[in-house]
């Protein structure tokens, strides 16, 4: 029986961080099934999904990571989960939302509140700031959204007008079929 853990690590970025962290996992015979990392303002944040043998626990992993020689301390948090390690495909009602417009405060809050109001779960979110132009791409799960898609689309149009941002929302499958060779 394997034990599944979600590990989150934040630290100042430097060459070799990923090698250090995955090295510590390797020493405990952990198997990395998924990893996501990004760097913002020279700070690296990484989230990993790893399976270990049953006898390995959170403390062992924290101890192993604390042995890594580094200038900036790692901030680590670990959760044990029940789910298996296999990749869960996005739900059928997955949509991609894009938001563009002049930068101002409250943009991420506004759109995430819109999603919350419609019981839309944000699966992924990426933002870019170029000059004063802010753009945001969100992957959304609408399967628990109580309203039909046309109601959400029209509410989104109203929100887009009122916020001064150009907002579009299209089904995830469109992006997949137009950008990937394999058609599922």
């Amino acid at each position: 029986m394997k034990k599944q853990m979600i590990i989150s690590v934040m630290s100042k970025d430097r060459p070799g961080i990923i090698a250090s962290i995955t090295g510590a996992i390797y020493k405990l015979e952990g198997d990395v099934s998924d990893l996501n990392q990004s760097v913002l303002c020279n700070y690296l944040n990484m989230i990993l999904s790893v399976s270990f043998n049953e006898n390995v626990n959170k403390e062992d992993l924290i101890a192993e990571i604390s042995h890594i020689k580094t200038e900036c301390k790692f901030e680590v948090s670990i959760k044990e989960i029940d789910q298996g390690g296999e990749k869960i495909p996005p739900p059928e009602e997955t949509y991609i939302m894009t938001v563009h417009g002049p930068n101002r405060t409250g943009l991420v809050y506004g759109i995430s509140q819109f999603c919350a109001d419609h019981t839309i779960n944000i699966l992924d979110l990426a933002t870019t700031l170029k000059g004063n132009r802010f753009s945001m791409v969100l992957q959304l799960d609408l399967q628990n959204c109580p309203s039909p898609i046309e109601t959400v689309q029209s509410a989104l149009e109203d929100y887009s007008e009122q916020s001064g941002q150009t907002i579009t929302m299209q089904h995830n499958d469109i992006f997949q079929v137009t950008n990937e060779v394999t058609l599922h």
């Binding site: 991609i96 894009t98 992924d124 990426a126 753009s135 791409v137 992957q139 992006f175 997949q176 950008n179």
Partner: peptide, 9 residues
Amino acid sequence: MLRSDQILA
């Protein structure tokens, strides 16, 4: 997730 440039195109 797909790349942002693919999504925007």
